[in-house]
Nucleic acid binder design. Sequence first.
RNA 1: GGCCACGUGGCGGAAUGGUUACGCGGAGGAUUGCAAAUCCUUUUAUCCCAGUUCGAUUCUGGGCGUGGCCUCCA
Length: 448
Amino acid sequence: MSNLRLTNSFSRKKEVFKPLNPKKISLYACGPTVYDSPHVGNARSLVVFDVLFRVLKVLYDSNVIYVRNITDVDDKIIEASLKNKKSIDEITNKITKIFHENCESLNCLKPSMEPKATEHIQGMIDMTQSLIKKGYAYEKDGHVYFEVNSYKEYGKLSNKNLDDLKAGSRVEISELKKNPMDFVLWKPSKEKEPGWESPWSKGRPGWHLECSVMSEKYLGKNFDIHGGGLDLVFPHHENEIAQSCSNNNTKKFANYWVHNGFVTINKEKMSKSLGNIISISEAVKKYSGQVVRLALLSAHYSQPLDWNDKLLENQKTILNKWYDLFLDENKDLSEIDETLLDDLNTPGFIAKIHEFYNAASKGDKEKKIKFNQACKFLGLFNVTKKDWESSKKTKIGVSESYINNKIEERLKAKINGDFALADKIRDELISKGISIEDQKGKTIWKVK
RNA sequence: GGCCACGUGGCGGAAUGGUUACGCGGAGGAUUGCAAAUCCUUUUAUCCCAGUUCGAUUCUGGGCGUGGCCUCCA
């Protein structure tokens, strides 16, 4: 088997993955901020890093630690709390629960650890204190800022230089900052906002800090792979590097940075103002977890992915077809296909699955097993054929007895030679999402 | 303005210095009362202009176009 190759955002090149320690592969992916139902964009990150996790587990014999955090303290959560007149805990608990349900319906493996920001406040206070002591951060009126000028490598990941980023219209201006690009490590909380005692104020940590603290705690000062959405490159990941490398006096934080592209909705950016945000729950309800998962893997992770009905219908057609060759066996894949090793080329791998399918449908038994293994490896086929069919039945608005009666009526009409009536009944069923197949003197029905 | 990505057949989407990706859809056929499902067959592509090369969709340069980041965002 050849090596895994990944496009490292840091070098902007495809590189051979060389682990720090093959006995302990370390992967960190930025998880959700639990303020609102996770959307299909979040789902893409989930699924992409889930595939990476699965690949690494096979390559390194399960010696993989996958950490995915939950951000449960954040301005957006406070806003949501005020807006919905619910407590912070109520919101974070509810959204975290939805998130976990979403992960399950997308058939994502559980990460090795799922630390929460609020459980690491002390660690963040300690790191802030340390950064101040070492001269990388400064306190002003209860706020603590990281001083970007103190870190020479600032901007290297996102390929930006501080001159280009200087006090523009898009940078938050604050009297308290030495440099407009300086970012918050700690800020005071108002009366009703969540806050923790600290040497500077009763307040809360800046967003970027949690990933620095948690990744170090669970993976170390230098670890293998850090992932997230493309939009996190700047400033989030840039700031993580600045904090961690300054504080630890290290050259490297994560060795490989992997970023997934965006999901657009009918070619438009998903945004609150456009009102086109599709939640994972909605998508799963309308289609199914597997269809959503396959859709998310139908383009290469680094490319944009457009979410539209045609795409989803297409994936549904494919899965329905694939389920014809479903095997209820549990043999795991022992070797990973070269296509996936090449920068997680999931569309290429899906093409191979189609080829396996075609050979299998012509009677190639070996390919049928391979086909099933490949589907399962991608995280598909996580329910049996029986369950797949019956879950489709829950999506239709008519009862089985209604359908069976209609089929009886149609059969009588056919016997009487009244094909017009027979066809009318069939059309009725089709309009309700039921397809009719006459096979070998028997009529069967399926949910489309 | 700075930085970056992308532009492949009707659509989605890989790969590649020279050979059919793959899927969905379309077309034709077998089958069927007609269909559906299935099977067989099949059509169509590399944004434009130069350069390198025996040969470029692939490499280089230029152009045009689309999108992203530079503010919270997966």
